[in-house]
């Protein structure tokens, strides 16, 4: 009986796999929702990107049109669990860029909404929410960091590709 329950020899591994699955699906949901909302209103996304006052107009246009689809692609790959570590690493790069853009807006005293999940653009002076927006992005960043350190999770395409995982093949 015990012999059939191989993971019992590594109980914490199983728990970590479940946590990894939650991190993967959570981050997938973040990207799919934020990308979907942005794709649905690309004009608004342009306004949101230009509000950061970081890029020349031509670059704003390119970034505003590419970013929503980049987010959707990251979300879809995470949902499938394909190349989890690589996708999580790319997620970190994107999230760091977002956090950097937000920080510079805060430091410069711009009155903008981050436009993280739709919306965005100028807001009235007292209505900025930088701490909340930064905390949220940092939380997402932690999910991605987990997946880079330990990309293993349940129901992932990676597991299918790497062969049956009932036998723990990694020892760390």
């Amino acid at each position: 009986m015990l012999a059939t329950l191989a993971p019992v020899t590594k109980p914490s591994g199983k728990t970590l796999d479940i946590l990894g699955t939650l991190a993967r699906l959570g981050l997938a949901a973040v990207w799919l929702i934020s990308g979907g909302v942005k794709v649905a209103d690309l004009n608004q996304t342009y306004v949101a990107v230009s509000a950061y006052e970081l890029l020349p107009a031509g670059a704003v246009s390119v970034v505003a049109s590419a970013m929503p689809f980049l987010e959707l692609a990251l979300g879809a790959l995470l949902l499938a669990g394909l190349g989890t570590r690589l996708v999580a690493a790319l997620s970190i790069v994107v999230l760091l860029a977002f956090i950097g853009a937000l920080l510079q807006a805060w430091v410069r005293g711009l009155s903008i909404d981050c436009g993280c999940f739709g919306g965005g653009g100028q807001v009235a002076e007292g209505e900025t929410q930088y701490p909340l927006e930064l905390a949220r992005d940092t939380a997402f960043l932690l999910l991605a960091v987990w997946l880079v350190i330990r990309p293993r999770s349940l129901f992932s395409a990676d597991a299918v590709f790497d062969g049956r995982r009932e036998q723990p093949i990694e020892t760390r």
Partner: peptide, 16 residues
């Protein structure tokens, strides 16, 4: 897997 990831993301960005 690496190639698939790069292609999916590349297509999404270029398509966008």
């Amino acid at each position: 897997i690496g190639v698939v990831v790069v292609v999916v993301i590349g297509l999404a960005v270029i398509g966008g």
